[in-house]
Design a protein around this nucleic acid. Structure first.
Lengths: 332, 332
DNA sequence: CTCAATAGTCGAACGCGTTCGACTATTGAG
DNA sequence: CTCAATAGTCGAACGCGTTCGACTATTGAG
């Protein structure tokens, strides 16, 4: 293994000089800098991460804490993970995975051992056992999603209330007077998942504001449950002409059930989904949708965490604005 | 921050004794051990990861190298990532993410800086630029999937040839005499992705062996492409009565196109998918399927890598056997 | 031209674990 | 009972970077 001493010898300078070239913490003459950089390249030198972390008190690693529960929508999750890893690299940091089932102890472990400089916590719930732990850690963190009590924390998320509201506005603009929200499985609401609640709140508030009638129903993801739910919905509320679906996994079934009931999309029923664009595009007809901007969220979360590491002040709460894309499921 | 010296002082022993209690590398009297462990708990001591890595030459971190290209199936990927992270924890290791776009340089960086003890490389292609790099690294690695030249490497994967073959056998057992493989997008075959080729080879070989006619076609994932492909297939080969679909993203569209063409599943056309169970269950009718055992693959890959770290001999090639689950799409 | 400030470089100390050799006390074989 | 082997513990050295203080050479202000 090549050490900084080898590089120093090769370049004819002191080890500390090599360090200053690499970290840029003191000015170095351009001649020396060039010589050292050539030696680094020639010897294939990579600083020992452990030694660096020990000496500098910086690991250049961020923890990415994955969601607690199953039933998360995998594609969005994965997009997010990749976005975070890439954004971190652009800031010269790596990403260490901490999975759900390690719980709060996992956070204490990676922070306590100085394995990471900061933490990114995904899919935070309203009453999340990890939130108080984050507060007591000596390392900065950024939450994706936000808990009931966000005091002293930095949170970032899609503005789901605005997403729900935007969907209703779009339908109201098209002349619909009775709209329904086909939501996440009941369990998601029961465990107080913030984003599901916020979508619903935005949806209902916009319906009030626009003077359109509205109803909401939680929906499981298996085909039979969706069939029962949608059939029941249209029986109880026969004049509903617009659906907002905030349940990625149930989406294909919703479309299929409408067809089997003889309801044409968009002529009889207009449909808007809150889901990734590629999924909306793949269905028949392609669905008007509001996308969860996983990549943008990931980048933003990393940027906030890096700012906190630099002790730059950061806003406690960032809400990304949703983007609605019109497709065939709402325009006749 | 609490150090080993603090713990030693608190327990009234030498730092080295604390180290021996924690690592178990020398025998310690149970009285001393208990006292040290109590001090560790009381002080909330976590060994500094960098110092440990520097002193012991072991980071207790594995690199997980994500796939090179887009178009991977996200849910399976994510399942795999989580399975790897959990399995690694059970062996007292953490997982560092290395994304595709870092390429071979990323592997050199994390290995060269001693940030990781070993590497897990996902979705290896037949001619993968990362393979020669893995060979020259001084750290062990395990590949998921396998390249054309696997000499000196350890690989693990689902036996996709057997998966393709199992599907044909199932259809042949049910009396089908003409079967088609609806495969991945053409691009996947063009870039020599091993698993797609192997499924096709197993499919074709089994058809020969069983004396059933067969055809294969690559398929893009958007609805329109699937419609064109399936319609064309059934026009050119009107007596095809069994489809094997190895393309998760196209699956909903395949089912939908068959319906729109008036072909009943399973009465007119039987369908078997190679896809995760939950997806097969969610479609209508639920599909007979061969699952990609992401979790099992993840565990196995980690177990192999840990064995290599312990210098235990490991088989160069491990193929996990596929499991076929019968559902409504093949039984009348 | 003088003196303070800055640029550039070095050497030593330090960060926090693990490991090695040495030592004492205990155990067990004969 | 003796002596070798083992169990248990300690202290020092070590791993490899970064950072601090010190020093020299150079620059720039007046």
């Amino acid at each position: 293994m090549v050490t900084i001493a080898d590089v120093a010898r090769h370049a004819g300078v002191a080890p500390s000089t090599v360090s200053y070239v690499l970290t840029g913490r003191r000015s170095i003459s351009s001649a020396t800098k060039a010589r050292v950089e050539a030696s680094v390249r020639e010897l294939g030198y990579h600083p020992h991460a452990g030694a660096r972390s020990l000496a500098s008190n910086r690991a250049n690693v961020l923890a990415l804490v994955l969601p607690m529960r199953e039933g998360m929508h995998m594609p969005v999750l994965m997009q997010f993970v990749v976005a975070v890893a890439n954004a971190a690299r652009r800031h010269d940091h790596d990403v260490l995975l901490v999975t759900a089932d390690q719980g709060a102890a996992g956070l204490r472990r990676v922070a306590g051992s100085a394995q990471v400089d900061g933490l990114l916590v995904m899919d935070v719930e309203m009453h999340d056992e990890r939130v108080p732990v984050l507060r007591e850690l000596d390392r900065p963190s950024v939450l994706i999603g936000f808990p009931a009590d966000a005091a002293g924390l930095t949170c970032v998320d899609l503005d789901f209330a605005e997403a729900g509201s935007r969907c209703v506005d779009h339908l109201a603009d098209l002349g619909h007077t009775y709209v329904a929200l086909v939501g996440a499985p009941r369990a998601v609401y029961q465990r107080d998942t913030g984003f599901a609640h916020r979508t619903m709140a935005g949806f209902s508030a916009a319906a009030m504001r626009r003077g359109v009638s509205s109803t909401t129903l939680p929906t499981d993801t298996d085909h039979e449950s969706v069939r029962v739910a949608i059939t029941g919905l249209l029986e109880r509320h026969p004049t509903v002409t617009g659906l907002v679906v905030h349940n990625e996994a149930a989406l294909p079934s919703v479309v299929e059930v409408l067809r089997s009931l003889g309801r044409k999309v968009p002529d009889d029923v207009a449909v808007i989904a809150i889901c990734p664009d590629d999924q909306a595009e793949r269905l028949m007809p392609p669905l008007t949708s509001v996308a969860v901007p996983a990549e943008q969220l990931g980048h933003h979360a990393v940027a906030l965490l890096m700012a906190k590491l630099d002790r730059t002040p950061t806003p406690p709460l960032t809400l990304l604005q949703p983007r609605l894309t019109e497709r065939a499921s709402t325009t006749r």
